[in-house]
Simulated assay, not measured.
Amino acid sequence: MPLWIPITIAAAFLQNLRSVVQKHLKGVMGTTGATFVRFGFGFPFALAFVGVLHFVVGYELPALNRTFFAWAVVGGLGQIAATFLLIHLFSFRNFAVGTAYSRTEPAQAALFGLLFLGERATAGAVAAIAISVFGVMLISVAHTAFTARTLVTSVLSRNALIGLASGTFFGISAVAYRAASLALGGPNFMTQAAVTLAVVIVFQTLIMLGWILWRERDELPRIARAWRPALFTGLVGASASFGWFMAMTLQQAAIVKSLAQIEMLFTFASSVFFFRERINRLEIAGCVLIVGGILVLLALG
């Protein structure tokens, strides 16, 4: 089994765990504060990953370059926007459906990978992405009268457009992170991923902290009061990102993000067992299609 597969599954599990805690944090602070927590409480762990690899394991640190910084900035800003929109979605619909809207990310990452990096997906990978995205569309209309028209018009609803925008920014950031990590040129995928994560997350923390100090200072006391769950969010968020960065250094971002649809299974489990939200037949059917897409990816991608 290629190494990027178990790394991606582990990252998907950790990301879902982070989202569960962030939804809780959304209830005690604003969207900006809940978004900041992912980065502001994650950067010490990101720096620790680099420290362990360099000082304990003995890996050399790569030389940073302009291409790396350019892609890191694009990815960092894209991820901030995507995370903000995703957390904002939690205010409108249940946890599973809100997350599902952003799951068009693999298809969008494939497009951006082609446009920016010249990467081409195999026929099997395209089929897998299409199956998974259709599963997401089913989930998006699961609480409305299901017809061909609602399946199409659901994409034009406010919530869907916010989710699609979130997926767009996630897709851009995924491709940018892969490009940044590859621009380092070595010494190995773990160190490249760790250094990329550390630089990006420090940049994101500074950007968001500056915004909060300028426009939303009342968020700071709320963040401080919730420091325990925020610290846990930072740990699992940084660990998930480290996993994504490693996987995307080894494999195309679109392929990694297609397998990452397995996160929806973890999301449905969270909806049922943590938030006591009911899952209907269409949501189950959408989940089955997502799993089917993953199986096609593993078999043919």
Rank of each mutant, 00 (worst) to 15 (best):
V195K: 04
V195R: 05
T196G: 13
L197N: 13
A198V: 08
V199L: 00
V199A: 06
V199H: 01
V200D: 06
V200F: 04
I201N: 11
I201G: 09
V202W: 00
F203N: 03
F203G: 06
Q204H: 04
Q204K: 06
Q204G: 07
T205S: 15
T205R: 06
T205W: 05
I207T: 14
I207V: 15
M208L: 15
M208V: 08
M208S: 05
M208K: 00
L209R: 11
G210R: 10
W211E: 13
I212V: 14
L213A: 15
R215I: 11
R217I: 12
R217G: 15
R217L: 13
R217S: 13
R217H: 12
E219R: 13
L220V: 14
P221T: 13
P221L: 04
P221I: 00
P221R: 01
R222N: 12
R222A: 15
I223W: 01
A224V: 01
A224I: 01
R225C: 01
R225W: 00
R225T: 02
R225S: 03
A226L: 01
A226N: 00
W227S: 06
W227N: 07
R228F: 05
P229Y: 02
P229N: 09
A230C: 11
A230P: 08
L231V: 02
L231R: 03
F232V: 14
F232Y: 13
F232T: 11
G234P: 07
V236P: 01
G237Q: 12
G237D: 07
A238Q: 00
A238G: 03
S239Y: 08
S239I: 07
A240E: 12
S241N: 12
S241A: 12
W244S: 07
W244K: 00
F245S: 10
F245M: 09
F245T: 09
M246Q: 15
A247F: 09
A247I: 10
A247S: 12
T249F: 02
Q251E: 15
Q251C: 10
Q252I: 07
Q252P: 10
A253L: 01
A253M: 07
A254M: 02
I255R: 09
I255F: 06
I255Y: 08
S258Q: 08
L259M: 01
A260Q: 14
I262G: 13
E263C: 06
T267H: 06
T267P: 04
T267R: 09
F268R: 09
A269S: 09
S270T: 15
S271E: 08
S271T: 07
V272W: 08
F273V: 15
F274M: 12
R276S: 12
R276C: 05
E277D: 03
R278C: 03
R278W: 04
R278T: 10
R278Q: 14
N280Q: 05
